[in-house]
Design a protein around this nucleic acid. Structure first.
Lengths: 131, 131
DNA sequence: TTCTGTGCAAATCTTTTGCATGGCA
DNA sequence: TGCCATGCAAAAGATTTGCACAGAA
């Protein structure tokens, strides 16, 4: 379990209960979109506003605490971790982290040094296959 | 230069001047977002409506004639070609097709057969570097 | 105490929908 | 001619903004 206090303290952002709640929720889900974050955080934090979610997602992304996963449907957010690839279910939108093959990573790095690499693999997840 | 008539004739979609204009515009730009497509097509086609652009992008994607490139900002569309990677400028949003390394491709294919692979490399384009 | 963050409401932007008319096959 | 596609206008959804107040440092 991460210590989100430290994440925020090391950043230029102030530590607020709202920010901690947002980070906790994203961490719990692994990946979540704006609406999912809003609805979940609101349960334990009824006064929170959607504008606060948006403003904080932008701020937390700029502070590199959050990363955005872009899909044809809703974009989702995750806690920034070491580089990895994503498996995305074309049916239900489920996102799963998968290790980024070291050989692939260094091959790209050789050609595009210091670039951010995003590898998305689209398919149908086990749950949806079973239906 | 592609023959967009044939693309449409081979699909379940009817060939209309609007669809041809949309495809021609995307092909010309390489990659374009909804608004760019609308504004450009409107110049030669003043009566076209934004709803027509949206409806057709969805239909053309389903017919696999168009592909979507997902970025943290506006999503863009391109004519579906053989698999390739994308370089995306973090500054101006410019997208450039880059060859998908064969070794990388087959490595992923071995692990995730028949999956759609999307590799995005983020950096700063030459134009923006020069500024 | 200072200055950033929050919450609300309104504004703005984006995308979708319904329906009458037009036009491709 | 039959149906799909278009265009318009309205609706619905998503995101941003301004401002007064609250709260972290």
């Amino acid at each position: 379990m991460k210590n989100f206090y430290q994440y925020l303290e090391k950043s230029p952002l102030k530590t607020t209960p709202q920010r901690l709640a947002i980070l906790k929720e994203i961490n719990k889900k692994g990946h979540a979109n704006v609406d999912e974050i809003y609805k979940s955080v609101k349960k334990n934090f009824p006064s929170i506003s959607l504008a606060t979610i948006y403003k904080n997602i932008i701020a937390l992304k700029e502070a590199n605490i959050l990363s955005e996963v872009c899909t044809p449907n809703k974009n989702k957010f995750e806690i920034t971790k070491k580089p990895h690839a994503h498996f995305i279910c074309e049916n239900c939108g489920f996102i799963e982290d998968i290790p980024l093959d070291e050989a692939i990573d260094s091959k790209i790095e050789a050609k595009y040094p210091n670039s951010k690499k995003e590898l998305y693999i689209y398919g149908v997840c086990e749950k949806c296959k079973g239906k």
